[in-house]
Simulated scan of single mutants.
Amino acid sequence: MKKIILFDLDGTLIDSTEAILESFYHSLNTHKEVTDVSDSMITSQIGHTLETMFLGLGVREERVAEHVATYKLYYREIACQKTLMLPNAIEAIEEASEFARLGIVTTKTGVYSRELMEYFGIMKYFEVLIGFEDVTHKKPHPEPILTALEKMKSNTQNVWMIGDTRLDLECSHHAGIDAIGVLSGYDNFEQLSTFDFIIQRDVLEAVRTIAKERIK
């Protein structure tokens, strides 16, 4: 039985920080409701849903939906040009595909995420991509991982999640699978150490660690 590796996107495989920040500022400037927002206020929330992030920036609940809609329209226009694959990410995907079945589990919109993966020529490596619209409950709830495994017709044995935030690790914990935290993204070592999982420098190190693990 082959292993399964599920990857987060932002901070794990891709760096879309510039596109995210620009899209947030575009929405905030368009609706002129909240001022005095800093880059760190936005990036510290990456991994959460857009709704949660806008609420965290002080947008009133009744205005969140229009902020999200404005963000998404703008983000889709700039995402491909202002997103980068993280160092070693493509190599990690290629190596992982030699011994494991692969999937993506992200809180980003699935449609846009697929467009990004096609743009970089790597969607062909993944059997599934679970995005925001594919689940009712987002990370850290286990539903995104369990939905991916259901589509892959797999149980939770020999399954790994690789992600850069506590949300990824907590989601893995609740789903009952192994996980590796990577330091290429938005949470630091101390934050990821909240969970009793392996922590590696980047996704390539994580993939190579999984490759050495015996199938259970």
Score class of each variant (00 low, 15 high):
residue 190 E to S: 13
residue 143 E to A: 15
residue 2 K to P: 11
residue 158 N to T: 12
residue 174 H to I: 08
residue 10 D to R: 03
residue 167 L to P: 11
residue 134 D to F: 00
residue 97 S to T: 05
residue 159 V to F: 11
residue 142 P to D: 04
residue 118 E to Q: 07
residue 204 L to M: 13
residue 191 Q to N: 14
residue 9 L to D: 01
residue 175 A to C: 11
residue 187 D to W: 03
residue 90 I to F: 14
residue 125 Y to Q: 01
residue 138 K to S: 12
residue 105 V to H: 13
residue 184 S to G: 05
residue 103 G to D: 11
residue 173 H to W: 15
residue 119 Y to T: 04
residue 34 V to F: 01
residue 98 E to F: 05
residue 55 L to H: 01
residue 60 R to S: 04
residue 14 I to F: 07
residue 16 S to N: 03
residue 127 E to D: 13
residue 61 E to C: 00
residue 101 R to V: 03
residue 106 T to D: 09
residue 40 S to R: 14
residue 168 D to F: 14
residue 162 I to Q: 13
residue 79 A to N: 07
residue 90 I to G: 00
residue 210 I to D: 12
residue 195 F to M: 06
residue 73 L to I: 10
residue 38 S to T: 13
residue 23 S to C: 03
residue 146 L to C: 00
residue 117 M to T: 15
residue 43 T to E: 15
residue 47 G to D: 10
residue 200 Q to T: 01
residue 13 L to P: 09
residue 148 A to F: 04
residue 190 E to T: 08
residue 48 H to S: 02
residue 12 T to H: 00
residue 139 K to R: 15
residue 201 R to G: 00
residue 152 M to Q: 07
residue 211 A to L: 06
residue 139 K to S: 10
residue 146 L to F: 02
residue 72 K to M: 06
residue 189 F to D: 02
residue 198 I to C: 10
residue 81 Q to G: 00
residue 75 Y to S: 00
residue 100 A to F: 09
residue 12 T to M: 01
residue 54 F to K: 05
residue 51 E to L: 00
residue 110 G to H: 05
residue 16 S to M: 05
residue 211 A to K: 09
residue 21 L to W: 12
residue 133 E to F: 00
residue 147 T to D: 04
residue 101 R to G: 10
residue 168 D to G: 14
residue 154 S to T: 06
residue 131 G to F: 02
residue 152 M to H: 14
residue 25 Y to M: 10
residue 40 S to A: 14
residue 117 M to W: 08
residue 85 M to S: 05
residue 20 I to S: 07
residue 172 S to W: 01
residue 58 G to I: 04
residue 73 L to D: 12
residue 33 E to C: 07
residue 204 L to C: 08
residue 43 T to I: 14
residue 146 L to A: 01
residue 177 I to G: 15
residue 3 K to Q: 05
residue 189 F to A: 11
residue 137 H to V: 02
